[in-house]
Amino acid sequence: MAQRKMGKEMTVTSDGYHSKPTYVYKVVLLGSMAVGKSSLAFRYAKNSFRETMPTVGCSFFKQMIHLETANIMFEIWDTAGQEKYHSICHLYYRGARAALLVYDISRKETFNRAKLWLRELEKDFLHDEIVIILVGNKTDLATEREVTSEEGKEFARSKGLLHAETSAKSNHQVTDVFMTMPVQSQSWKKSRVDLRAPNSNQIKKCCKS
């Protein structure tokens, strides 16, 4: 994966001198209906923290991750997978750092639909603006598999995406998928310095006006 530049919409805060900065990292979950988007998020959030689940819905999650160089506040935004909402979903992408493109390995059409989602994403983002992970979910249904692992990998490679196969049901590789994103972000330290420059310019601009 190429190194990503951090946009200014990234919230950077710093806990005094000695503690690590905290980044907000927004992830959108995309994919057809019933491929297990919510379940993935649910599984991830539940396993990381043994806290009580949100009593109401499971379409928005917040998760703090402590890395060596930074704290990362994960925000997982679930989206509606129905085809009819396809055209309006671009509203969710704003400010997202990563997208999980989820398909169901036991349903071929969800894989094809994931390809369409990708096309939508490419309209809104430059290639290095966002991490896209193609996730084949429901590996527990291996006997009913319609999309082979190779097929997924091959497509991901051709588009420069990451690929993983998971099972939210049996908790296979779920956490790994989520951790892939920040692990690649060791370069954030450097990008933090970059952040200062445009902001200090803006202060000047404001004083003039």
Binding site: L29, M53, G57, D78
Partner: peptide, 10 residues
């Protein structure tokens, strides 16, 4: 069961 985004938006 807790609602997912598939239920929420409609």
């Amino acid at each position: 069961e807790p609602a997912s985004a598939d239920d929420f938006l409609p």
